[in-house]
């Protein structure tokens, strides 16, 4: 048991944090008041510096990939990371990225498709990939703060991947959980800043106990989620993966509500970034069937059938 990063992981994490502190990762209102911005610049920098390959490196490993997904999801800009950092190194290392993932119904809108250069299709029985060409994707309007698109399925050629489909789904559970936990953390950080600054009734909002206790409860959940996610990334055990996702999705609704409450009207504008995190969280909390489905998987893995 050693719950601290090794030397390489520390270096990786420090370097990553420096990159993510750059201006290109910050919030600026999107043109036409779109609800999202894709972080093209940081995406390229991360790729060029090999960050997405951490999982395959022995001294970094999947733990670091999960940590990276968690950190990147805290940015106001959206960056495709979960598939690139956890799935790609595992069974599709040549796949061009950004990568979109079909985790359920292939005809539904899927996040990151508008900029994706390839798709991974996960199912219970097999894993397939396809390279995307111009015209394969139609951009979709969305309430969520992700670039969303719909696939032209007829135009695609699928390759079967020789990998364990169940394990790929487990990895994806961990990736989604990390992205969701990161989105919540990003939102929480932004709300913390706000409630320390904003005064009403002659005192900072953050000095009210009703606000304090709910934010404290939120951070307990988010921190525990992060640890459960890192543990699952290391063990890649089906129970750990289901647990990490279930725990994270389970808290997302309440935390999302609290974050918006404490931001007041400002949090309902497109001039403030809060919606970027909460609307990514809103999508991810339903991913892979949502919390009850993930709890069901956990119950199956831990206790077996009835």
């Amino acid at each position: 048991m050693r719950l601290a990063f090794n030397e390489d992981q520390t270096t990786f994490s420090t370097f990553l944090e420096q990159m993510l502190a750059s201006d290109v990762c910050g919030f600026r209102p999107a043109p036409e008041w779109e609800r999202l911005e894709y972080g093209d610049a940081i995406d390229v920098q991360l790729a060029e510096n090999g960050f997405f390959d951490a999982a395959a490196e022995e001294t970094l490993g999947p733990v670091m990939a999960a940590e990276m997904i968690f950190k990147i999801a805290q940015l106001p800009v959206a960056v495709e990371c979960a598939a690139s950092a956890l799935l790609r190194p595992n069974f599709a290392s040549k796949l061009p990225r950004p990568i979109a993932v079909i985790e359920a119904e292939p005809h539904h809108p899927i996040r990151f498709l508008p900029m994706a250069r390839s798709v991974i299709w996960l199912s219970q029985s097999k894993v397939r990939t396809a390279i995307l060409k111009d015209g394969d994707v139609q951009k979709a309007d969305t309430l969520f703060a992700y670039p969303m698109g719909v696939l032209n399925m007829a135009a695609l050629t699928w390759d079967d991947v020789d990998t364990d489909a169940a394990k790929a789904l487990d990895l994806w559970r961990i990736g989604v959980a990390a992205e969701l936990a990161g989105a919540l953390k990003g939102g929480l950080n932004s709300v913390l800043e706000h409630v320390k600054e904003r005064h009403q009734f002659g005192r900072p909002l953050g000095s009210f106990q009703a606000v304090q206790h709910r934010l404290a409860q939120g951070v307990i959940e988010i921190d525990s989620a992060r640890w459960l996610i890192l543990k699952a990334a290391q063990s890649q055990d089906p129970a750990d993966a289901a647990l990490a996702l279930a725990h994270t999705q389970n808290m997302a609704t309440r935390i999302g509500y609290d974050l918006h409450q404490f931001m007041g009207a400002m949090g309902l504008t497109l001039e403030h970034p809060l919606h970027r995190w909460t609307y990514r969280a809103r999508l991810l909390r339903s991913a892979l069937g949502g919390a009850s489905s993930a709890f069901g998987h956990y119950a199956d893995a831990r206790w077996g059938p009835a």
């Binding site: 959940e221 525990s224 543990k231 647990l243 725990h247 009850s292 709890f295 069901g296 119950a299 009835a306």
Partner: peptide
């Protein structure tokens, strides 16, 4: 076999594991 019971059991287990990992972080 009752899905509600399974869900509630899993939620209770998740609370235990969340507590465990946070405690381990402090002990570590």
């Amino acid at each position: 076999g009752d899905p509600v019971i399974r869900l509630r059991a899993a939620q209770a287990a998740a609370s235990c594991e969340a507590a465990r990992i946070l405690v381990y972080h402090v002990v570590d």
